[in-house]
């Protein structure tokens, strides 16, 4: 459903990403992982239409994207700059639905349902600054869910919360998105997280970022923070991705995990 063809972007003389090619199928959860400064955010912002890439195209359902695509939502890392502090959680979640032509009653109902799914039904009237970081990021996720996008982009969504909250949010995202059959592109610098959350892990090189690895993750579901991370397959895959991120040559296909290098 999403296809990137030779996507490149330069800021002045600085090349952030260079000819990135990627195909994402409907319903897939793809994690993009890479060292800091590999242009992960540039990639995401190009797809979201927040910047106009200097080269290449983004195709969504086969159509080239110009501006922010309609059926797309983003969960940003910095929730404090993405949730509006002058609105309650309910209003924040319901706001994007104004564009969907729903009346206030139905917007509130949809927003409430989304908040329930992330376990915040009781906090609908609270303001962002009355909530912990984890709760605020839940509101962000609820906002994306209520919007019912076909593609959900997540930019380091759990980068600003503590470790335990992070695990909770990872599971929550997996559970809720599977329920909705959403396609997800999650960007992270955390190798562990990319393997745990993704159906596929795509590794970007240091700037200028290009795809240096594309690994399917074949782990039994449902995934579980303790048991999944203990599996031998998980440990091996994590090591594999880790090497790629650090720019080492991968061990080729020793255990049946396809590693494609370009």
């Amino acid at each position: 459903m999403l296809e990137l063809v030779d996507l490149s972007h330069t800021y002045g003389s600085y090349r952030a990403i260079d000819r990135v090619n990627l195909k994402v199928a409907q319903g897939e959860v793809v994690c993009i992982v890479g060292p800091s400064g590999c242009g992960k955010s540039t990639l995401l912002r190009s797809i979201a239409g927040l910047i106009k890439p200097t080269g290449g195209t983004v195709l969504l359902d086969g159509k080239p994207v110009a501006g922010s695509p309609e059926n797309l939502a983003v969960v940003f890392q910095d929730y404090s700059r993405s949730l509006y502090p002058w609105m309650s959680a309910l209003a924040n979640v319901g706001l994007p639905l104004r564009r969907r032509g729903l009346d206030k009653k139905r917007r509130d109902a949809a927003a409430m349902a989304a908040l329930e799914q992330v376990g915040l039904a009781g906090a609908a009237a609270k303001y962002p600054w009355e909530m912990s970081g984890g709760m605020q990021q839940r509101v962000s996720i609820a906002r994306a869910l209520a919007y019912q996008p076909k593609l959900l982009l997540m930019d380091e969504p759990f980068g600003s919360v503590d470790a335990q909250t992070r695990e909770e949010l990872e599971d929550l995202t997996l559970r809720v998105c599977a329920h909705h059959g959403m396609t997800i592109l999650l960007i992270t610098h955390d190798v562990d997280e990319s393997v745990y959350v993704g159906d596929r892990v795509v590794v970007l090189s240091k700037a200028p970022g290009t795809v240096v690895g594309d690994l399917p993750v074949q782990l039994p579901g449902p995934r579980d923070q303790i048991h999944t991370r203990e599996l031998e397959a998980f440990v091996r895959l994590r090591a594999e991705v880790g090497r790629l991120v650090r720019g080492m040559t991968p061990h080729r296909n020793t255990h049946g995990f396809g590693v494609e290098t370009r």
Partner: peptide
């Protein structure tokens, strides 16, 4: 950040 959120969710 506020404006980017608005653009992504296509506010009028």
């Amino acid at each position: 950040g506020f404006l980017e959120t608005a653009r992504v969710f296509q506010f009028s």
